[in-house]
Amino acid sequence: MNSLVTRGSLFDDFFKDFAPGFYVRPLHGDGLPAPSQIKVDVKETEGGFTVQAEVPGVPKEDIHVAIDGSVVTLRAEVRQLDQKTEGEKVLRSERFYGAVSRSFQLPADIDAAQSKARYDNGILTLTLPKRVNDTSRRLSIE
Rank of each mutant, 00 (worst) to 15 (best):
D12P: 07
G47E: 13
P56G: 05
E88V: 15
V5L: 09
Y23N: 04
E44C: 03
V42F: 00
L126A: 00
K89Q: 12
K16V: 09
L106A: 05
S136Q: 11
L4I: 13
Q114V: 07
R92W: 09
R92D: 13
Q37E: 15
N133A: 13
R79G: 03
V78L: 06
S115F: 06
R118V: 07
T127D: 09
I110A: 03
F14L: 14
A108M: 13
V65S: 01
A53R: 02
E94G: 12
I38P: 00
E44W: 01
V90K: 04
L32E: 07
R25C: 11
V65A: 01
P35E: 14
D111Y: 00
D17P: 03
G57Y: 10
I67E: 02
F96C: 07
R75F: 09
S140H: 08
V78A: 08
V90S: 05
A66F: 09
I141D: 10
T127M: 08
K43P: 02
S3Q: 09
V58F: 03
P26L: 10
R79M: 05
G8Y: 10
T73A: 03
S93A: 13
R102C: 04
N133D: 14
Q83D: 09
L81K: 08
D17V: 04
R75P: 12
R7Y: 01
G57V: 08
S140A: 09
G31T: 11
F96T: 13
G21F: 15
E88Q: 15
A34I: 06
G98L: 13
R138N: 13
A117K: 14
V78N: 07
L81P: 08
M1R: 04
F104Y: 11
V132R: 14
N2R: 14
G8S: 11
T125V: 04
K89W: 11
F18W: 10
L128P: 01
A53T: 03
T85R: 10
A66N: 13
V58R: 02
G69K: 15
F22V: 04
Y23I: 06
V42A: 01
R118E: 11
I38D: 02
T125F: 03
E86C: 10
Q114T: 12
R137F: 09
N2L: 14
L32M: 12
S70W: 02
T50L: 09
T73N: 03
I123V: 13
R95D: 05
L32D: 05
R79D: 07
T127F: 04
D134E: 09
F18V: 07
D120M: 12
D41Q: 07
P59Q: 00
D30M: 15
H28G: 12
V90H: 01
T125K: 00
D111I: 10
F96E: 13
V90Y: 01
S93H: 03
A117G: 07
L128M: 01
V78R: 12
V71Y: 01
T85A: 06
T50W: 07
S93L: 14
G122E: 02
G29L: 07
T135R: 06
K60M: 06
F15Y: 08
K84E: 15
A113Y: 06
L126K: 00
Y119M: 10
Q114K: 15
V42C: 00
D17W: 06
T6F: 02
S36I: 06
